[in-house]
Design a protein around this nucleic acid. Structure first.
Lengths: 137, 137
DNA sequence: CTGCATCCGCTTAGATACTG
DNA sequence: CAGTATCTAAGCGGATGCAG
């Protein structure tokens, strides 16, 4: 339980289920909402569960909780619970390891943007905070 | 059929199933063997179906064919069929778009290597050609 | 050599309701 | 507020066999 990564991933590593180190990296953010979560936490420093829940369109609590738990297991983000006015609260924040992943995610954003642009592929995104937040926040 | 990307992906794009451009990028290489395929083709310039089949441990032909078809649909690699001694052959090669993805994949490799190293996480990989090929081939 | 067809199981996510 | 529980649906990959 004190391993630096999820059991699932650790198992794949030792089993030789990955062909190479890059697939390990891929497994860090291949959940459906992980990229958004990392992106947001990378820009706003901390968020509550419900803030993320409202921000990420159409995600259910169950799935969100799941994604967060895995990201915590993998040490990419950290969870802190505290209390205020008899209210139990939780915040999620980036860890250093998580931050070290941001350059890759940024590149993925750039690549996707350019490719969609170049071919004028029609796209509708749920979130479009990306460019703005990174510029001034 | 002449779209620059897979129907599946195009549908997700127009449906707003992606939160952001980076998820589109992710969908380019999130198949189980796509990273290896791209990596190999990025280094050796061209390969036959069976070369890839033998190289990638434990992959089945069906799955390999599938991954290749998707990569072709997404314009990351190209397929060329020809004939030699009454033998129908096919080679797969990188496209320019595919090549433009390599820097990201390289970074993923580096990140994974460093992370596994730093924590001395036990790992067994099917392939270990990565570092060598890139150095001298 | 380069695939495709079929069947089947696992993982992951969605729907909905409930809890401390 | 921050989740859990249960049930269901869908996608993806594995096994095996056949085909041009």
């Amino acid at each position: 339980m004190t391993d630096p990564i999820r059991q699932t991933v650790l198992k794949k590593l030792t089993n030789g289920d990955f062909n190479c180190e890059k697939e390990f990296t891929l497994s860090m953010f291949s959940g459906k909402y992980k990229l958004v979560i990392l992106w947001e936490l990378g820009h706003v420093s901390e968020m509550h569960f419900n803030e993320l829940y409202r921000l990420i369109d159409h995600v259910t609590k169950k799935v969100l909780a799941n994604q967060l738990r895995e990201l915590v297991s993998d040490q990419l983000i950290k969870r802190t619970a505290y209390e205020r006015n008899n209210q139990k609260l939780v915040i999620y924040q980036m860890t250093e390891i998580g931050e070290s992943l941001l350059p890759i995610i940024d590149q993925m954003y750039e690549w996707g943007k350019q490719r969609l642009n170049a071919y004028q592929i029609p796209a509708a995104f749920k979130l479009d905070v990306a460019g703005d937040i990174s510029k001034d926040a």
